[in-house]
């Protein structure tokens, strides 16, 4: 009752206020940058590495070898991924070559403790990347829920080179987010978790993953 009043009171005050017509939004800033595929790759790589992420160049044929290499270099005891995605299915096919694989096919409430304690790394696909800022785009879904890119200490993400856009605005426009409709959650990730809250000095792995590893195919 009181709350409804609050809503109406606020809106009434705003609506009865003086009107001002602002100028239309200027369009002299382009949505995208004039970069070819190579430029986009170069910037994407450079920015991510500057943000302390690892980037591995691979192909659609040999990326599993890259992933295997990452798992062994980092001595991962297990890997969380979804076998239901096309990329995940490929890992599953050769699961004998990988650390113990983990998968949760039920609501979080049942796997929260296991997720927070005992997962070494998670693998996810991506919804593309942004070159200007060195960013991966994630549209978490039923197969790859949002927490798997957040809770485990290592996040390994696969990005298709053809899906790297020059800017955020470019990605949003080219992928036509408005028409597609926004999912529950979209994440832009541009490196491992970090903080500069102490003396403006960077430290990594504060609450999210300590390492972000990108496999480019």
């Amino acid at each position: 009752m009181k709350i409804n009043n609050a809503r109406n009171n606020i809106l009434n005050r705003l609506k009865t206020s003086l009107k001002s017509e602002s100028e239309p939004v200027a369009h002299d800033v382009p949505d995208s940058l004039d970069w070819g595929v190579d430029d986009r790759l170069l910037h994407f790589n450079k920015q991510l590495q500057a943000a302390n992420a690892e980037v591995h160049d691979a192909t659609k044929d040999n990326w599993l070898i890259t992933l295997k290499h990452i798992c062994s270099t980092k001595r991962l005891k297990n890997l969380l991924f979804s076998p239901a995605t096309p990329w995940g299915a490929q890992i599953l096919e050769r699961s004998y070559e990988f650390p113990t694989f983990k998968h949760f096919d039920y609501p979080i409430d049942e796997w929260k403790p296991a997720l927070f304690d005992g997962i070494d790394a998670a693998f996810t696909s991506t919804h593309g990347g942004i070159a200007e800022t060195g960013t991966i785009i994630l549209w978490p879904d039923t197969h790859e829920p949002r927490l798997i890119s957040l809770v485990p200490p290592v996040h390994i993400a696969l990005v298709e080179k053809t899906e790297i856009y020059s800017t955020f605005a470019d990605a949003l426009k080219t992928q036509n987010w408005i028409k597609t409709g926004l999912p529950t959650n979209i994440l832009l990730i541009s490196g491992p978790s970090k903080s500069a809250d102490i003396e403006q000095t960077l430290t990594y792995g504060v609450h999210g993953p300590k390492e972000l590893v990108i496999i480019l195919v």
Binding site: I186, L187, P192
Partner: peptide, 23 residues
């Protein structure tokens, strides 16, 4: 902070949907 972007940009458009596992 002079960053071109922050590590995370999180866009939330709904609570967990029936077929989703977290959130």
């Amino acid at each position: 902070t002079g960053q071109s972007i922050t590590t995370y940009f999180n866009m939330i458009s709904s609570p967990r949907k029936p077929d989703e596992k977290d959130g």
